[in-house]
C-alpha cells in the first residue's frame, strides 16, 4: 500500500508526459546553455575589460571603473531586469532602424547577454589581478623579441596569468550557475522556474524542489571536480607555494 503510494509519487518524476521529468530535463539543458553562454561572454568581456583597465587611456580606464563598480554594487536581480528590458528594447529598435522591422529577440540570447554583462564585471577584476601578478620581466622579454603587443598578450601574458586567475574564475563559474536561477524571476523557463511550475501543478512541492536541488548540487560537484583537474594542469611546471 505504502509502496504503491511511493511508486505513484515518484512516477511524477518520470520522463514521459504524465511525469514532469522530461520538462525538468529541458529546463536543466536551458540552464546549462545560459551558464555556458553567459560565462563565455563574461570571460571575453573580462579579458577586454582587464586590458582596457591596465593598458587603456585615461578615459577608457575611468569608463571601465564605472562599469565594474556599478555592476558589482547593484543586485544581480535588478541588473538582470534592467538589462533584459533595456537590451531587448535597444536591439529591437536598432534592428527596426536598420530596416528589419520588428524582430522578436530570442529569450535565450537575451539571458546570455544579461549574465555575460554581469559576469564580465567580476571577470574584469579577476583578470586584472592575475595579469598584474605576471612578472614584468617576462612581458619585457617578449617585447624584446619584437613581438607585437597582441602577440605578447596571446603568447605570454594570457597563458602566464592563467594559474593566478583560475581560483577566481572557478568561483565565477559557480556564481554563473547560480545566477541562471535568477532568470526565473524574469520568466525564462530554466530549471528553477520549470521546477516551480511542476511543483505547483502537481502539489508535490518537496519532491520537485528536492530533485532540482539534487540536480544543481550534482552540477556544482562535477564542476568542482573538473576545475580541480584544470587547475592541476594549469599549475604544472610552477613551483609550489605554501
Amino acid at each position: 500500500m505504502v509502496a504503491a503510494a511511493t511508486q505513484s509519487y515518484l512516477s511524477l518524476l518520470a520522463l514521459e508526459p504524465p511525469g514532469w521529468g522530461g520538462v525538468m530535463l529541458v529546463g536543466f539543458i536551458q540552464s546549462l546553455k545560459l551558464a555556458f553562454g553567459g560565462y563565455g561572454l563574461g570571460l571575453l568581456i573580462g579579458i577586454g575589460g582587464a586590458c582596457g583597465k591596465l593598458y587603456g587611456g585615461p578615459v577608457l580606464r575611468d569608463l571601465m571603473e564605472v562599469y565594474t563598480t556599478l555592476i558589482r554594487a547593484i543586485p544581480e536581480l535588478v541588473l538582470m531586469l534592467l538589462l533584459y528590458y533595456a537590451g531587448t528594447d535597444a536591439l529591437s529598435q536598432l534592428l527596426a532602424l536598420a530596416g528589419y522591422g520588428s524582430v522578436d529577440i530570442n529569450a535565450l540570447t537575451a539571458g546570455i547577454f544579461v549574465i555575460g554583462v554581469v559576469q564580465g564585471a567580476y571577470a574584469t577584476e579577476v583578470f586584472r589581478g592575475a595579469i598584474k601578478a605576471v612578472p614584468i620581466g617576462q612581458i619585457e622579454a617578449a617585447r624584446a623579441y619584437g613581438m607585437s603587443s597582441f602577440q605578447v598578450l596571446r603568447r605570454v601574458t594570457l597563458p602566464a596569468m592563467l594559474p593566478h586567475a583560475l581560483p577566481g574564475l572557478a568561483n565565477l563559474w559557480m556564481v554563473a550557475t547560480k545566477d541562471t536561477a535568477l532568470l526565473a524571476v524574469i520568466g525564462f523557463s530554466e530549471l528553477t522556474l520549470v521546477t516551480r511550475q511542476a511543483a505547483g501543478s502537481t502539489k508535490a512541492y518537496m519532491l520537485f524542489f528536492l530533485a532540482a536541488g539534487a540536480i544543481y548540487l550534482a552540477w556544482t560537484l562535477v564542476s568542482s571536480l573538473v576545475i580541480r583537474l584544470i587547475e592541476k594542469r594549469a599549475r604544472r611546471g610552477l613551483t609550489r607555494t605554501a
Binding site: T180, A181, T192, Y205, L210, G213, Y216, L217
Partner: peptide, 13 residues
Amino acid sequence: GTPLLLQLWMLYY
C-alpha cells in the same frame, strides 16, 4: 551548491 532562489522557494512553497 544550490541557488538561493531555489532554497527560498523550497522553504516557502
